[in-house]
Nucleic acid binder design. Structure first.
Lengths: 117, 117
DNA sequence: CGGGATCCCCATTGATACTG
DNA sequence: CAGTATCAATGGGGATCCCG
């Protein structure tokens, strides 16, 4: 059995890790945006504007940019007329899939629980 | 193979579920707060004030209250002098553990990736 | 179509002080 | 210790227009 000091250090390390994750995923729409790309693999700007209910083009643009900076999302301009832009997850971004899956499952279960009352 | 219409309905359902989760977990500190309680099982107000780096007593109080309303956290006033208050996860709250674990792992991996560059 | 620029508001948050 | 109250400020985010 671990002594309390050791356990405590481990807890702090875990909490810091969670915070590191949330630093990248913060913002009102990031999870929803990733969820959208995750579902469709490739998704265009205007599609996501519909997927993510309530988001404005300004916020979508802003949060996508941040996700791109953090190397979670890759942006590709397609040579169409008019121009379309495609977003997809990077390899690193794809490692978020299990988190999204978890959130999906939990959301369904939570929904059931609330309405079962 | 599923037709596109079916797949699309499924995607929308998944995205809604993710949003349902985030509705409950929104707020700058909620995940960190849950993470703290999750690590220690039972945790006091002042301890969490230290665990969650940067949070103010006002915000901690507010977000804990919201978590309590959503039945994720249970609040117990202990009969000590001076009074102490203990927070723990409800059974429903404990179902968030796999999400927290995922975020912990991902945070560590993400941290490594950023600093490996 | 995919954004950028601008204006503007109000909700979220912080700081500080106070209380049972 | 565990909050609550009050005030003040910041910036998140909406609405609108514009542009390549």
């Amino acid at each position: 059995m671990k002594c309390i000091i050791q356990q405590d250090a481990e807890n702090k390390r875990a909490m810091r890790a969670v915070q590191d994750s949330m630093d990248v995923l913060n913002g009102k729409w990031k999870i929803a945006i990733i969820s959208s790309i995750c579902c469709y693999q490739k998704r265009r700007f205007s599609d996501m504007l519909n997927d993510v209910v309530g988001v404005s083009n300004k916020m979508l643009s802003k949060e996508l940019k941040e996700l791109e900076i953090n190397q979670l999302v890759k942006r590709t301009v397609l040579n169409t007329q008019p121009i379309t832009v495609q977003y997809e997850l990077t390899e690193h971004g794809k490692t978020l899939k299990s988190i999204i899956d978890n959130l999906t499952e939990w959301g369904l279960a939570h929904h059931d629980k609330i309405f079962a009352k």
